[in-house]
Write a protein that binds this DNA or RNA. Structure first.
Lengths: 147, 147
DNA sequence: GCCGTCGTAACAACTATCGTTACGACCAGG
DNA sequence: CCTGGTCGTAACGATAGTTGTTACGACGGC
């Protein structure tokens, strides 16, 4: 499967960006620029802007334009869980069913779809439950503890 | 994110193939051909052979060559969990860390990697725990119940 | 008006998945 | 021994997601 070398660092980067903004604001600054965040993440500012645009749609962040522009959080780090971030970047299903509908004449082909879908639903629920346990405040605390 | 439209149906297809073989053997046949399985799954036999080759490496299935060739299970459906299948197809990590190492001068950039990795470890453990709850016998039972 | 920043489109590079064709390797049965 | 069916596997193409990059218009304090 090799789920990816070219893979899913979106949740990591989104959490990194929000945590960075949170710490920056806690130090008294009003807004953080995509350039500053990109420097910490070590990527291109456009990547940050794209990702933060999705987080803004989900209500986790907001941006200001014009001079003195930049990004800010809409609520405290303690009020944002990794599940919120996960939902904001709208990942597709973890597992997919068949690309082509299996043979309906076959007992297995006919019935296995819903059975696997039910399992996948529970797996996703477990995954979301785990992500909900951690807030960005927890992340920041652990990050500062490690330093 | 759209984890995939072109995505991960490998677990679905692997479970389908093994369940099909299991049912076929239960009906008295010794081996199933990749062509038969492919018909039920509605795909190309090569796709099935490729996937079953990985399951064979993991010890879940075996093949016989020559005339009267085909595939068989190495143990009962009840002794194979979806976690076994998941491990057999060797999915890469669910979430990746940063593609490029973040700025080590930055507190967040320096410390967030291990923190996220710890979270991801727990998430994967939860996912595996859920997959371990279901055996292919369970899958077959539910499939037959639905019919 | 200027200038810095966002907003977004467009493109390339890379990778994984899925389907397909092709062909050699293998082996039971005649 | 040879034949026919099946596996084993390489090779391609199509499709699509992610990441990085350039480019340029839109916005709005100053």
């Amino acid at each position: 499967m090799e789920r990816d070398v070219s893979a899913n660092s979106r949740l990591t980067i989104a959490a990194h960006a929000l945590t960075w903004i949170g710490l920056y604001q806690r130090r008294g600054y009003e807004v953080a620029t995509s350039e500053q965040i990109a420097t910490s993440v070590n990527t291109n500012p456009v990547v940050i802007r794209r990702l933060l645009a999705e987080l803004r749609k989900a209500g986790l962040a907001d941006s200001r334009r014009g001079a003195g522009a930049g990004w800010m959080l809409t609520r405290d780090l303690a009020a944002i869980t990794l599940l919120d971030v996960y939902r904001a970047i709208e990942p597709g299903p973890l597992f997919a069913l068949h690309p082509a509908t299996p043979d309906p004449e076959c007992v297995v082909g006919h019935g296995i779809g819903p059975v696997m879908a039910a399992v996948y639903d529970e797996v996703e629920a477990a995954l979301r439950g785990e992500l909900a346990k951690t807030t960005l405040e927890d992340v920041l605390r652990d990050v500062l503890k490690a330093a």
